[in-house]
């Protein structure tokens, strides 16, 4: 019997915790109780930004981490964070998994990449109404990540970085005029009272994933290794992400039910100006990957990814 410690950095009420519990239960059952999974939530074992290294060093057997917390370290997977890459996170997670699994061996050699566990594409939520890009000019928005911040700056907004616990205070006290989050998080973080305008344009997905410590994996019996392999598949990427994404999507309906909320939907034919503002980020990504992996490396990677996403019906 082996115990696998699994660490993440959000409170137990968060959907990430539910996803980890679902995954852990399935592993325990599939191994006939041979692998016990002990989940440590809420940074009990380490800071959010250290989770990749915690998995790599064997502080934990497995864990959930966000690659975007270490810009520049995993240049290829930064593609997944680019605005307007995918419309559907669950399908997108499966496609990304198929695309990235091989590349992860090179880009994340210290861990065993396991699966993507991310959320429904995030939207812009504001205090004042936003119908066009020009409405965003000068608005102070708390971005979900650095790359979202760069995109907001390209739109003419002012990205104001606030730590997660400061986000709510920042909104309540008017330090920021809006945030980027998926739907239900707005309600869950208590932001729905202030942020009553929403731009329904699915534009970003953070790159959050599970990793497994290699030594932990090697020390397992062949049968148990297979159990882990079976739980680190594109299908599991889709399943875990779908659970979170569905929960987030329910938030849209809930906001409409609460009343007093205005949701401005950007129709597919009106998306061009929004998408155009992200082109610089795509170029920056390509330049970065080319610099690390040789000229001309980025182009085919991106084409391949976009083709796979379109084929699966999750492309933009």
């Amino acid at each position: 019997e082996t115990t696998m410690t699994f660490s993440h950095f959000v409170p137990t009420g968060h959907r990430v915790h539910a996803g980890a519990e679902m995954w852990a239960k399935s592993i325990e059952e599939a191994s006939g109780g041979d692998i016990k999974v002990r989940i440590f939530p809420a940074q009990q074992l380490g800071k959010a930004a250290d989770h990749y290294d915690m998995i790599a060093s064997g502080q934990v057997g497995a864990g959930w981490f966000v690659s975007g917390y270490s810009p520049g370290r995993f240049p290829i997977i930064e593609a997944g964070e680019l605005p307007f890459l995918m419309t559907d996170a669950a399908t997108g997670a499966r496609v990304l998994h198929e695309w990235y699994a091989e590349k992860a061996r090179e880009e994340m050699p210290e861990i065993r990449f396991c699966l993507f566990a991310t959320h429904d594409p995030g939207r812009i939520h504001t205090r004042a109404k936003v119908e066009t890009i020009s409405d965003l000019k000068g608005m102070k928005i708390r971005p979900a990540s650095a790359s979202v911040g760069n995109y907001l700056a390209a739109l003419g907004a002012i990205p104001v970085k606030l730590a997660a616990p400061e986000a709510r205070q920042g909104v309540e006290r008017g330090v920021v005029d809006g945030v980027t989050f998926p739907w239900n998080t707005i309600i869950n973080f208590g932001l729905a009272e202030d942020l009553v305008h929403h731009v329904d344009l699915p534009f970003y997905v953070p790159m959050a994933m599970y990793g497994v410590n290699p030594a932990f994996y090697e020390n397992l019996s062949p049968e148990n290794r297979k159990v882990i392999d079976d739980h680190c598949t594109p299908e599991w990427s889709e399943r875990i992400t779908s659970d979170w994404a569905t929960w987030e999507q329910d938030g849209r309906q809930e906001l409409e039910d609460i009343g007093g909320h205005t949701i401005v939907t950007v129709a597919p034919e009106d998306r061009a100006p929004w998408v155009e503002k992200a082109q610089g980020l795509y170029a920056d990504w390509a330049a970065q990957v080319d610099q690390r992996y040789g000229d001309g490396a980025a182009g085919p990677m991106m084409e391949d990814l976009q083709a796979r996403l379109s084929q699966a019906g999750a492309g933009f």
Partner: peptide, 16 residues
Amino acid sequence: ALVLRSREVTPELRFE
């Protein structure tokens, strides 16, 4: 050594 190897940068200015 870990930071050096990771080639991590700041998010906006991409300063090492």
